[in-house]
Design a protein around this nucleic acid. Structure first.
Length: 335
DNA sequence: ATTCCACCGGAATAGCGGGATA
DNA sequence: TATCCCGCTATTCCGGTGGAAT
């Protein structure tokens, strides 16, 4: 069934990108000055999940590096959300972290190091709206040879959340909007992966269309469903992905994506999540009492509020109402 | 209308872990 | 070894908000 599992993984970066020519051109145009040794415009990619933002950003970096001597670094601000961690990651990109330690290195030596590095540098900041303190963007603006490529779901929402000084800088960067994939586009993407990763005839066009349709424009879900379906078919000793396998694979793929997020929660946060799951819907008072009774040394109410806010940010939970009447419930997959 | 109360979330602070320094 | 510094999490403090009770 499967000949190459890698091409079905999220991280896989295809050599050719389908149905995103306009976006790729826009990025290339924005970064063009780098080829002539001049500072380039910053770029902002935005659009819903699974529309190829990250993929196209990584692809563009590969292309750029083939044409010019330029350093690039990818930072996912979901994982590296503090100023320090972002700067540290960016230093890794130019190999200047050797004697950096989080203690005893004077406060802004990281920024100085990036500044001192010669040559153009493109910093890709994915999930940039997850930064706890976006002022690191301002730090980077002060360095002429650094170009920032930001990625987020909601461009306007992000602009509104930063202070005026930063906002005025951000509004001048080139913004590129990504629309959800059409069913045809998703089928084309899936066909590519099938050709490289599965035996011929392992799956019919009809089943690919079914997957593409259920994915609702989200390539990540579509590829995940294909992966799950291929594995299931293999486990069951089938030589073809059947309609039944596809039907099961779609919800499983969404679950897999969710459980990836759940893995990043702490033990206490997980307890809290379980409580919300059991109650279906719960107000904060009940939530805290329940939590208090289940855990050895409970955190304070304030900390729990932070946990809840975090899980809402992560799209795990949904909050309803403000102030006194607020309640929390699980956020179901699929916006 | 007014008061009350549960809850929200910003800001400042404390405490911890861990590496550096003297 | 004792001490310092830093990042990071949790805690403390508190003003603000909106629904419920009076």
């Amino acid at each position: 069934m499967i000949t190459d599992l890698r091409v079905l993984q999220d991280e896989f970066l295809p050599k050719e990108i389908r149905h995103r020519d306009r976006e790729i051109d826009s990025i290339a145009t924005a970064l063009q000055p780098i080829l002539h040794g001049e500072p380039a415009d910053d770029v902002f990619l935005h659009g819903p999940t699974g529309v190829g933002k990250t993929c196209i950003a990584r692809y563009s970096m590969e292309q750029l590096k083939m044409e010019a001597a330029v350093d690039t670094q990818y930072v996912n601000c979901w994982n590296d959300y503090t100023r320090y961690r972002v700067l540290y990651k960016l230093l890794e990109g130019v190999g200047r972290t050797v004697d950096i330690h989080r203690s005893s290195t004077p406060r802004d030596v990281l920024l100085d190091r990036i500044q001192d590095a010669e040559g153009p540098y493109v910093a890709v900041l994915d999930e940039v709206d997850q930064l706890e303190d976006p002022s690191v963007l301002y730090d980077l603006y002060t360095i002429p040879h650094v170009t920032v490529l930001m990625i987020a779901n909601d461009h306007q929402g992000f602009l509104n959340s930063v202070d005026d000084r930063l906002e005025s800088r951000l509004t001048v960067c080139r913004d590129i909007k990504f629309e959800p994939y059409t069913v045809d586009a998703l089928v084309a993407i899936l066909e590519d992966r099938v050709r490289k990763g599965l035996y011929p005839d392992a799956v019919s066009d009809r089943q690919l269309e079914r997957i593409a349709d259920a994915a609702a424009g989200d390539a990540r879900v579509a590829i995940g469903a294909l992966r799950v379906a291929a594995r299931t078919a293999e486990d069951r000793g089938l030589d073809e992905i059947t309609p039944e396998v596809v039907e099961d694979a779609i919800p499983d793929a969404r679950k897999q994506i969710r459980s990836k997020t759940l893995d990043s929660l702490t033990e206490h946060q997980m307890v809290l999540y379980d409580i919300v799951e059991e109650h279906g819907e719960a107000d904060p008072g009940v939530l805290y009492e329940e939590y208090e009774s289940r855990v050895d040394s409970p955190k304070t109410r304030r900390t729990l509020r932070n946990y809840l806010a975090k899980m809402v940010q992560y799209d795990l939970l949904e909050a309803e109402g403000e102030g006194r009447g607020r309640s929390y419930r699980l956020k179901e997959a699929g916006d």
